[in-house]
Structures are given as structure tokens and as C-alpha cells.
Design a binder for these strands. Sequence first.
RNA 1: GGGCCCGUAGUAUAGCCUGGACAGAAUGGGAGCUUGCGGAGCUUCAGACCGGGGUUCGAAUCCCCGCGGGCCCGCCA
Length: 624
Amino acid sequence: MYALHSTKSAVQTAADSVIRASAQKSGQNSVETTVIKSRNPALGDLSIPVFSLASAQKKTPQQIAEQLCNTKWPDVVAEAKAEGGFVNLYLSEIFFHAVLDEAADAQYGRQTPMGEVQRDEKNGNKTGKTLKKSAREEKGKEIKPTENPTILEYSQPNPGKPMHLGHIRSTIIGDVCANALDLLGRPVVRLNYLNDRGAHIAELITAMETFKDLPKVTDEKSLLAYYVKIKAEIEKDPALKEKTRQVLEHLKDHEKQLVKIREMSWVAFKRNYDALGVKFDDIPFETTLESDSRARVQECLDKGLAKQEPDGTIITQLEPELSNTVLLRSNGTPLYFTSDLALADWKWQKYPFSQSWIFTAAEQNLHFRQLQLLLTKMGRPFASRYGHKGHGLIRLTEGKLSTRAGRVILLEDIIHAVEEEAKTQMTARNPDAKDQPDSKSDLTIAKAVGIGALKYGVLKVKLEKDITFDPKAEVQFEGDTSAYIQYAHVRACAILEKFAAQAPGKEKAKNAKSSKNNPNAQNGPNLPTVPTKLDLNDSEKQLLLKLAEFPDVLEYVATTMQPHALCEYAISVAKAFTSFYAVSPVLTPENEDLKSQRLHIVASTKNVLALTLGVLGIDALEKM
RNA sequence: GGGCCCGUAGUAUAGCCUGGACAGAAUGGGAGCUUGCGGAGCUUCAGACCGGGGUUCGAAUCCCCGCGGGCCCGCCA
């Protein structure tokens, strides 16, 4: 268990036992208190409010606090003071030693309070075949988050249409949550479910069968051109419209075209995913689940959860809990809802999951509540673990994004624009710098900075909130931005590199090139040992306390699927580091012990920043 | 009409689930910091909980009533 967590629980236990004993003695009911992290560093590192205790025992908070201070605290506590109705605890060197020890570990965060997962386990592999296989073997047994995967379903663009700005949120939020689970050592399946049905697909097929001179699709722009051309042709020809309707009803008979649409769409999507560094484990298509969809509709009819109306429509019976929704059109074709039903079963069958999360825009909230309710009524054992996270819209200053309204901002264009902006900024700040490939990444530095800024700008906003996107102003590089975090990491790297270069007879950071999978690569053998006696100033203590929070933040994100907490954390670490940097010379301190101590602090910080950025899908650069 | 979500400095944002000390950063504004490891930086000042009730020793946080904005409410996804 990690230092902060074990410290908190040790302190909590100590406090609880004293409170319970004192309550027993006075014959009163015991009152709960909770150990919290102090908000003001001047008032301790951990605090225990005692107001409720005071009012229960009819004493002043100060009396109770003073009384509690005399408790025999665990040795991670250096001092306890009664201040303003709080017991403020000041942590000892033992605590900071422990933090320094664990935070430099490349697997830091893996062994969380919940984790049965061993930190030293050899196989660093993540969502490989082994996990999928083992998940299947576990079927029928108890479902555990450490053994049964979490399925994350995100991105989900429409084949046949280009990806636009609106797709970015689901795509990167899902990706970050998956990364967090990965780092925790828990199995995860990254799913991108593509709806290759819909009216727009029928339109494309009609066009493919009607026109010969259609543009070749290689990217988003050509895909959009393709779609717009076809749309226009169909609009002005009623015969084509009718044909489109027929195609939609008999999609199965157009398998060849369907395959082609999937292929060319994927070519375009893949360019964006590669640019964003987003990957998937499984990409099921809606049409492959069609027969299952119909079977589910029948099941609902049999169980009295749906009924057929005179015009042939089949509709759910979810009232009064929720409003009803259509399962099958009057012409007998299935809908999004129907195939989502089949998809749920498909997921459960293929990956018996501990949790499933779907990330979409919040406008689909009702849809997914209806889906979950129906799954519950159908008696699916996984229904309660079948979750949905609806995120706020990304809107332009003028209004909602829509492919049809023509006010589209292609994802491809956004990505290009942020890269260009980053390049401009880089040249302005550092005219001599070249936009060279970063040693750890496939991207150039400007791309890594630009993409990072784009992702960070979207990720840092709480899920539920809408984002008004100004393409020009959105991407920032100063203050609460990814560039600030990357810059802190660069500075940490620069110190360690300089130290390695100064060290006589030591090999330089020769493994810098191969350090992609091991952010800790150059920390190890080169550093002198941590001094037994630490001499920490305030900036160092605050930084170490921040580093100690990492496992909890990671756990929080993996549990709540709220990546913005990680952004908040990353910026606070970077800030604590730059404050430390300003007042604590690392390579030229007063004595060797201090130098060693600070080198370890820098190495730990660098590691935590790299891990955090890694989860956020932002490159931890060594130069910029 | 009904349901869900949001409302915090000029702007944009965290804290709300699980109540606790002067509401935390950012940007913009004021004042400083360049002879030490990268100034995309550091230090510092001013500036905010939509309104009204309630619960509580204590409310940005929980409950109720409003106000403002967004989304959704059977053959779109």
C-alpha cells in the first residue's frame, strides 16, 4: 500500500480507537471523524476536525483537539497540534522517505489500495490476448475488476461521414480512462462500435451503384466531398430517393458496397486516431449484429416488455419508470436502440466484464437509461454494471456542430491547426530550435505540443459541462496547459541529464532512445543513494506530498471515469515542481546530501509527470 | 407540460458524490524577479459561490421553492 494511503488509515485507526475509548468511558455514543488532507500547508499535512465530537461531548473543540493531540500517533506523524478546532498532524521524515522510495518506480500507482495486483509482477503486458482469454475462462465465477475486464466503448464515428470536432471528446475521454485502467494493471477492452447502417449509408450505397465518377477517399476531406456530392444528387432526384429507401430496407443485399464503405471510412478515421495516438482492441459493426437484434425484439415481446402497435411498430413497455421507445420501425427495420440491445449481449458474451462504460454526448442520456432499464427487466445479470457517461457538447460560438448544416469543423483540420500553432509558438520562443522528432515519440515536438494542448483543453473540463470551442483561442501554451506540464518535465530531464554528463566515468543516458516504455530508465544506477537524514524545505515537502497523491488520483479516474481530475493533478504537480525549482538548487546546493536528496526528488517528479502525461495520452517530451 | 444536466472573480475553470479552517489554480489587470539546473518560468496584490428559504455547531457542498442556460421526451444517432 502506498505511503499516503497507509498513513491516512494508520492515523484514522489511531484516532478512532482513542475516540471510542473516550466515548466508552463517558458512556456516550461514539462519533465519526474523518482524517482529511489539510488545505493550508501552514496548518499541517493531515487534519482531523473535531467539531462534531466536541458538540457530542459538550466541550469546546479546542479542548477536544488538545486532548486528542496526546494520542500515541504512528511514527509517520512527527507532531500533532490543536489549532482552531482541528488536530493538525505534521508528517515525519519516515513518510517522505517512503514517498521518495515509491514515486520513482516506473510502476508507481499500479498497486492501489484496492489492488490485489502485485507491483513486482513480471508481465507488464496489458490488454493482450491473454487477458481476453482469461476473462472467458472466468465465466461463471465471481466477477472481479482485477480479472474481468472493463469495457470502454468510445469514439464511434459514423462510417461514410467524416469525423468532426464533436467526436473528439468521447474519443479521448475513453482513451484516457482506458490508459488509467492499464496503468493500474486492470484488464480493459477498448471498443469502437461503428454504425454501418442508417440512412446515410443507404445514400452512399445508392450513389455507388448509380455514379461511376466518385472521388477516391483517402482522408476526412475526400470523405466529406464524397458525402456532400451524393447528398446533393439524391436531393434533386426523387427516383434516387426511393431507391435509397429500398436499399435501407434490404441492406443485406448490398454487402459488397457495405464492405467498401467500411474500408474507406476506416482509412479516413485511422489517420485521426494515429494523430491522436488512440487505439482500439475491437471494432464491431452494427450490421454484423442484425440477426441478434431481431432475436432481442422477439424476447421482449415474449416477456411482455414490448408490444406491437396496429401499424406494425414494436414499442417497449417501460412506463411508468421511463418513457417508451421504438424497437422496430413499422417497416420492420431495427433502430439504434435495437442493435444496442444486441450489442450489450454481444459484449457480455465475448468479454464477461466487471464493468462496461459507453461514452457519448449527453443528448443520448435518456436512450441509455432506457437501455439499462430494459436490460434489467430482461433479467441480464450485468445490467447494473452497464454504464453510460454522457459528456457536454462541444459547440462553436455560433451553435451546435452538424454534418448536415455544413458548419463542420473536421477533426483533421483541427489537428493540423494546433500543430501549426505549436510550431509558430516554438519558433517565436526559441528561434534556434528545430522541430525535430522527439526521442521518445513518433511525433515531432511541435506535433506533440499541439496535440497535447488540444487534448488537455478538452480533457480538463468536467465531463458534464459544455465546451464552447474557439478554434483560434482554444489551444494555449501558458498557465493551466499541457505545455506547462511538458515544460516542467523537460526541465526535470535537463537537470538529470546535466548531472549524468557531469558524473565522471559514468555512461551517459545511453538508453534515452529506448526509454519509451520505461520513463524511469535514467533514474536508477546513476543517482547517489538517498541520504538517511532528509533536510526538506517547504517546497520539497509540498512537492512530495503531491507525488504521494498519485495512486489515489489514478484510482479516482478509473473508478469515476472523470479524466479531468488527472489534468488538475498534473498541473498541480508541475506547479509544485516549478516552485521547488525556483528556490531549491539541485546541482549546486550547500552539501552533497542535499544534492542527492534533490536529485531523487527530481527523478521522482519526472517519473510521476511522465506517468500522468502517459495516461492523458500526451507525450512527455525531453526537449521542447 | 414532464425528465436530466449546468450556473463559482472581467473571461474560462476546480471543489459538490462523502458538509469543516481565510473557496483552489489559470488567464487578463497592478507590482516585483535576468550575473545558479531552460523565462512556455518564479514571487506578490486586487477580484467570485444565480436568488430565497430549510437542515446543521458549521453549507459552494445536503433538502425545498424560484431564476437563467443546455439537452431530451416512439419510428435520428
